[in-house]
């Protein structure tokens, strides 16, 4: 029997609160009180300075694509192809893996501005991304990093 149900997260004690917030469509991540850095996925202490003192902060939801791929071969019956996955660099710093929900697969590129959206699947809200041009906002012409590195 083929299981077509979509895989669901199996939270750890460190991530339970994160997934609870997702249910209310809030993407929150830890920020260190001592060194100020954000990190993701959530864990018990700051991986930068090992401080135990941190707070949950809600992300602005704004980021850009560090990289992306397009699945052509179907790996799982719940994920018909083609679909895109991206690693988005959030403006707070952490990079987050997620689906890129768009009809314009051929317009994706590294450096593309994206915003966090929610992929509603049964009882879970899974963080995903959407190109900013899909929301009617003009994308910046050339990303600074690309200009610098390819020049």
């Amino acid at each position: 029997m083929t299981d077509i149900r979509r895989p669901v997260p199996r939270p750890s004690p460190e991530t339970t609160e994160f997934w609870e917030a997702c249910r209310q469509e809030r993407f929150q991540m830890p920020q260190c009180r001592d060194c100020g850095s954000f990190w993701f996925p959530p864990s018990a202490f700051c991986p930068q300075c090992w401080s135990l003192h941190w707070d949950w902060r809600e992300a602005s939801g704004s980021g850009q694509l560090h990289t992306f791929v397009i699945f052509r071969r179907q790996y799982h019956p719940a994920f018909p192809t083609p679909y895109a996955l991206g690693v988005a660099q959030l403006e707070e710093g952490p990079r987050v893996l997620g689906r890129i929900l768009t009809d314009g697969l051929d317009r994706l590129h590294v450096g593309l501005q994206v915003k966090l959206v929610w992929d509603h699947t049964g009882e879970w809200n899974i963080p995903a991304f959407q190109p900013v041009y899909d929301s009617g906002i003009e994308e910046p012409k050339v990303m600074g990093i690309l200009k610098k590195l390819s020049g």
Binding site: R6, P7, V8, P9, R10, P11, S12, T15, W19, P41, T67, F68, V69, F71, Y75, H76, F79, Y83, L85, V87, L97, G98, R99, D119, T121, W124, I126, P127, A128
Partner: peptide, 18 residues
């Protein structure tokens, strides 16, 4: 167990393709 299959991430091909 999380931040993986639930977003549609499967396998080493995609990791290296990134």
């Amino acid at each position: 167990s999380e931040f993986n299959a639930e977003v549609g991430m499967f396998g080493a091909v995609a990791m290296h393709a990134f």
